[in-house]
Structure formats: C-alpha cells, structure tokens
Write a protein that binds this DNA or RNA. Structure first.
Lengths: 147, 147
DNA sequence: CTTTGTGCAAACGATTTGCAGGATG
DNA sequence: CATCCTGCAAATCGTTTGCACAAAG
C-alpha cells in the first residue's frame, strides 16, 4: 500500500508532474482498476466516501496524465470516452451484451503483417478490437437457450 | 449516373425506407466518398451549391440508414463520429499526421485466431485499426528529413 | 388520406474554458 | 514566492428532441 503510493508519487514526479491529492487519486484509481472507466465513473468512485475532486479537475488531471504518457484514451463505443492506465500496446475485448471491456495481451495476435498493406501506406502500430460475449453473458445466454 | 440513382432508390425501398430527396442525398454522398465523413462534412458538401438538407435531417437520415443496415459508424478519434456506407467487414488505416482514413480490405489480415483468446471469452467479430503515415504525409516527412 | 420526414429551435450531455483563491515545489 | 492546480460556473460543441408543416406512398 504505502510502497505503491510512493511508487505512484515517484512516477508522477519523474514525468515532471506536480503531485496533488487529486492527481494522485485519479492515477491511483486508474491503476487499481482494469475496466477502463469513464470520467463520471472515476468521479463517483473517488467521491464515494467524502469529496476528493471535482469533475473539471478529473478532466484536467487526465489531460496531464495523458500528455505525460501515463494514461491513454480508449474509444470503443459512441459518445463514451474511457481511460486506461495501461499504456503498453495491447488489444481490447468488448462484450456486446454488457458492454464490459477487457484487455487482450499483445501476444495474442502475432501474425499481423503491416507489410501486407497496400504499397504507399506506412503502417506503424495497430490495435485489434474483438467483439463477442464475456463469460457471464455467454453463460446467461446459454441458460435462456436451455430453458 | 441515372442507373446508379435508380439503384440507390431501389436499395432504400427494399429496406422499407421512404425515399426523400434528403435521405437520397445523404446515402448517395456516403456511397460516393471513401473518407468516412462526419455529419458536418456531409452537411457542407450537400449544401455547397444550394440548400438541400438541415443538420437535424442528416442526423435522422443517418439513423434510419444505420437501422436499415446500409451505413455504419466509425469511431477512430475522440469526439468525432464518422459514417461509412461500406458495411462489409473491413479494417481501417488512420494517418497520424493528417487524420485521413482509408479502408483496409478484410483479407489483408487473415491470420487472426479468435480461438487464442483466454478461455471463457467468446469472440465473434474483430476489427483492426492501423496507425501510420499515408502516401502524402510519408513523402512530406521524407522531404523534411532530406533538407 | 394516413403515415412518416423535414426543418427550426430549444434541450441536452459531455467536455472545455475563465478566473479567483489555494497548494506545490 | 513564483508557478501551477483546483473548483466553480459559464461557455461550447456535437447530438437529440418537440412540434408544426410538408411530402411520400
């Protein structure tokens, strides 16, 4: 706990960011979850017990963290901007039933050849988005079928 | 020209959509371009010479076309919703310099194995987004380097 | 003639901005 | 103590909605 907090402080400082309670809370929250929350989800969770931050500050913290390369946006649904503290290259799985999102390891698809693009296009990075059913929604659907 | 117009009318009718000048114009415009325009880009182009449609009608036309399965949304940048009359499965190339978008044929990446997802996830469809430099931006960058 | 679409303007929700006071390094 | 951050409220931008009139089938 304490160690992790220190690590976060060090990370922020190493990127030249001032360490404020709000910025710390936003980054720590993002690191602690894997569901790529929206701004409102972060706000709600941070202020659950007592007020920690305002909405505008979440936006500005996220912008600072994004510019520092500690956080990135994830765009999977229309009108919803999510945030992710995992900035390593990876893919995403998106459940079409519940809308849940899960990371897919980079190594899962290793046969993509950017060289096979049409001549002229210089591909540099790529990202795969898989749609389907997650564990829970898949079993629920099966149950309905069985009944 | 005339043939194409008739084909569009037939397509709309076959989906149970009433054929109005506005709806026709929106769909014809989308079919004629490959750059996945935003609502404002469609509006601007349609009303270039004389007023054809209002913004609200573009939205409602797009919604009708989307529900009919003739058009789909493309989400690649934050805060920008683009539209695409190509509803066949395909991938996208996005130029990091100019923001231009181009389709990538479905066959380009044929080695993706949805079975390699972690057990429990039922992958159904996927889409690859490639980031890089398009022809023009690539050559411009090279010129700068050379100078 | 019934149903659906259009256009305007108002409403809406997410994000951004301006600014005064406060905290950080 | 200079700089940057926070929080509030107002502004902004894309999208949606309500409604009276018009067009499609």
């Amino acid at each position: 706990m304490q160690q992790q907090a220190n690590a976060i402080v060090q990370t922020l400082k190493s990127k030249g960011l001032r360490v404020t309670p709000q910025r710390f809370a936003v980054y720590a929250n993002l690191l602690s979850r894997t569901d790529h929350p929206t701004v409102d989800q972060i706000l709600t969770e941070l202020n659950k017990d007592f007020p920690v931050s305002s909405q505008a500050t979440i936006y500005s913290s996220l912008q600072a963290l994004r510019e520092a390369g500690l956080v990135r946006e994830v765009l999977l649904e229309e009108g919803v901007c999510r945030y992710d503290a995992n900035v390593e290259p990876h893919h995403h799985f998106c459940c079409r039933q519940c809308g849940g999102i899960e990371d897919i390891g980079w190594d899962t698809f290793q046969y993509i050849q950017l060289k096979s693009l049409r001549p002229g296009l210089r591909g540099e990075t790529y990202e795969v988005t898989v749609q389907g059913l997650c564990d829970r929604c898949d079993s629920e659907t099966s149950e309905v079928k069985t009944q």
